[in-house]
Amino acid sequence: MEGKTCCVSGHRDILADETAHVKEALRQEIEKAVNDGFTAFLSGFADGVDQNFAEIILEMQNENPNLKLIAVLPYQKRMDSLYQKEHTNALLDACAEVIVIQEEYRPNVYAKRNRYMVEHSDRVIAVYDGREKGGTVKTIRFAHQFRKELREIPVGLNLDKNRTNLGQSRR
Rank of each mutant, 00 (worst) to 15 (best):
L42G: 03
R115A: 06
E97C: 05
H87N: 10
V137L: 03
F41Q: 09
D160H: 11
C95N: 06
A54Y: 03
R27P: 14
N35R: 04
G48R: 08
Y83V: 00
E63H: 14
E55C: 01
I30Y: 01
D93F: 10
L58P: 05
Y105F: 15
A143L: 09
D17S: 04
T39C: 10
L166N: 09
E86H: 05
A94H: 10
N52P: 12
R123D: 08
N114T: 03
R78P: 00
S43V: 02
P107L: 09
V72F: 06
V49F: 13
R163C: 00
N158Y: 07
N66E: 11
N165V: 00
D129L: 13
A111H: 11
H21P: 00
R106I: 12
F41H: 13
E152P: 14
R113I: 01
S9F: 08
V127L: 06
E86T: 14
F45L: 08
Y83A: 02
K77D: 06
H87D: 04
N162S: 15
L69W: 07
K138F: 11
K32D: 14
I125D: 11
V98I: 13
N52Q: 15
C7H: 05
G48S: 08
Q28E: 14
V137G: 02
N66I: 00
I99A: 04
R113Y: 03
Q61Y: 01
